[in-house]
Structures are given as structure tokens and as C-alpha cells.
């Protein structure tokens, strides 16, 4: 009996192992390609960040941490880092805040033709990202839509210069450009909520407001968390928006990275900047995940 038991166990284990093997065999092309074009370049970037540029396309290959010391002590990079983080955080907050009621409306107050509303909300995002950002330059510019419109109507006598080329312009533009990334995840998590929970809360005497804060909002937090991460990470590294509407006061870390690979031609420093910004973003995201996890647990 015991021997029989052992052999079946062995067989089962073997089968399981071969299932694992079969799975990995099927997955191998994907893993190989992804590892080849992600991990290897990434290791290359780490090595390059430890070198020193000594001329055009020439590097001193003795390993040194100097580039990272520059990144973390130079006043300019500190300003760019903190500005990027603040602009992205503000953008993320605003985008989610503005998109939430919209997603809520479609999830709970649209009965028929939900799909039509979803298409309606996402259609503007099918224009080119560049042109969407550029549109805000057209709107906020010195001779732009707002200024020329107000001048034409006689409301102002000379163009307002405060509109464009500052961090606020970057935030407004990004809030518009990334809206779909907030609307969709929040909508999905709202749509998933079991409606009988809401009815139960009403039957037990909750006012609509109390019901919202006790049931709807907590249950939609996974969507909100997903939206914040989906917006925060890419906007920290956005290059297009700060270049087009940020001006020199609105430059962000991506502009510095691009500069080192372009006219600055200090590739090792650029690599160090890239790795540092990635590390900062990753740490913030992980902390945010942990905090939001404990928070949602407390609510339950």
C-alpha cells in the first residue's frame, strides 16, 4: 500500500514537472525575446552608468560611482527630480478626481447604451499624442486660442503671458492627455460592484452619501489605485509635454536625460539619470502600493 502510494506520488510529481516544462516550452519564445530586448540592454545601461565619457563616443571604462554622485548632489537635478514628481503627482490626483464622477455616472446612471458612452469618452484619445499635447500649446499660447479669443471679444487688451510655459500648463495638458487611463480602470471597478450591496445598505438605513463612502468608494479603490499607477509612472518620464508647453520653468527629468544623450553628449551621466529616476519611481510606487493595501484593509 505504502509503495503504491509512493509510486503514484512520484508519478504525479513527474507529471506536474512535465506540465511545468511544457508550459515553459510554450512560453520560451516570449521570454527569450523579452529578456533579450529588455534585460540585456538594461544591464548594458547599468555598466555604462559606471563609466566616464572622455570624448565623442569614447569612454573611460574604469568603474566609478561619480555619475550617481553628480545626479544626487547637483542642485539642478534635484530641482528637476522634485518638479517631475510634484507635476506627476498633481496630474495623477487631478486626473483621477475629474474622471471619477464621469466613470461613476456611466457605471450607475446610464442604463442603456453604456458602450456608446465609453466610446464617446475614449474617442479623443485616438488623436496622436503629440497633436493632443500640441493642441494645448495652440490654446494657451501668446497668440493662442484663449488670448486671441479674449482680445477679439475685447475682454483683455494684451495677451496673458501666464498661460503657457510653466508647470501648471504641463499639469493641465497631462490631465487632458491621460484622462482615458483614469476613466477606464475606475469604470471597470465600479461596474464590478455587486448592486445588491448597495440595496442592502439603503434598506439598512444608509443615506446615499453614507452609502457612497461606506460601500462604493472603498470597493472602487482597486480601480483608483490602478489608475494612479498607470498615470504616475509614465508622466514622470514624459518628454513631449514639458518640451512643448513647459518652457524652461517646466522642464522635467526626461528633458535632462534627452539632453545628455543629445547635445550634452555625456551618455554615462544620462544612463545614471535614467537609472536614478527609475529607482525613485519604483520606490514611490512600491510604498504607495503598500500604503494603499493597508488602507483598504482597514476599511474592510
Amino acid at each position: 500500500m505504502n509503495i503504491y502510494h509512493k509510486t503514484t506520488q512520484k508519478l504525479r510529481r513527474k507529471l506536474q514537472r512535465s506540465e511545468s516544462l511544457k508550459g515553459y516550452l510554450l512560453l520560451s519564445p516570449t521570454i527569450l525575446v523579452m529578456a533579450g530586448i529588455m534585460l540585456i540592454p538594461f544591464i548594458g545601461m547599468i555598466i555604462l552608468s559606471l563609466w566616464t565619457q572622455i570624448g565623442y563616443a569614447k569612454f573611460d571604462t574604469t568603474l566609478t560611482l561619480n555619475n550617481f554622485i553628480v545626479v544626487f548632489t547637483n542642485e539642478m537635478y534635484r530641482v528637476l527630480f522634485s518638479r517631475s514628481l510634484v507635476v506627476s503627482a498633481m496630474t495623477t490626483f487631478l486626473t483621477v478626481l475629474l474622471a471619477y464622477p464621469m466613470a461613476y455616472f456611466v457605471a450607475f446612471h446610464v442604463q442603456r447604451r453604456k458602450l456608446l458612452w465609453i466610446i464617446l469618452m475614449t474617442l479623443p484619445f485616438w488623436t496622436s499624442y503629440l497633436l493632443r499635447v500640441f493642441a494645448w500649446k495652440v490654446i494657451l499660447g501668446y497668440n493662442g486660442v484663449i488670448n486671441s479669443g479674449l482680445l477679439w471679444l475685447g475682454i483683455i487688451n494684451e495677451p496673458i503671458t501666464l498661460l503657457l510655459y510653466n508647470p501648471s500648463a504641463v499639469i493641465i495638458t497631462l490631465t487632458h492627455a491621460w484622462a482615458a487611463f483614469a476613466i477606464l480602470p475606475i469604470y471597470v471597478s465600479l461596474e464590478k460592484i455587486d448592486r445588491s450591496l448597495l440595496e442592502a445598505a439603503t434598506d439598512l438605513g444608509d443615506s446615499p452619501l453614507a452609502r457612497f463612502f461606506r460601500i462604493t468608494l472603498p470597493l472602487s479603490l482597486p480601480g483608483v489605485v490602478a489608475a494612479t499607477v498607470l498615470i504616475f509612472i509614465p508622466t514622470v518620464g514624459d518628454y513631449v509635454t514639458p518640451s512643448l508647453v513647459g518652457g524652461s520653468d517646466g522642464y522635467m527629468i526626461a528633458n535632462a536625460i534627452q539632453f545628455q544623450f543629445g547635445r550634452g553628449s555625456n551618455w554615462p551621466l544620462g544612463a545614471a539619470l535614467s537609472l536614478s529616476s527609475m529607482a525613485v519611481v519604483t520606490v514611490i510606487t512600491i510604498v504607495y502600493f503598500l500604503v494603499s493595501k493597508t488602507l483598504t484593509q482597514n476599511i474592510r
Binding site: 529588455m38 540592454p41 509614465p234 526626461a254 536625460i257 529616476s277 510606487t285
Partner: peptide, 18 residues
């Protein structure tokens, strides 16, 4: 899934170097 959570400019730079 990692590329989803890396800013695109870093993907670009890493590939350029490589």
C-alpha cells in the same frame, strides 16, 4: 509585464545604448 511600469524614455535610452 515589466515594461508597463517603466517610463518609456528609459526603455528608449537602454535600447539606444545597447
Amino acid at each position: 509585464m515589466l515594461p508597463l511600469v517603466i517610463p518609456e524614455i528609459i526603455v528608449a535610452v537602454a535600447l539606444l545604448i545597447f
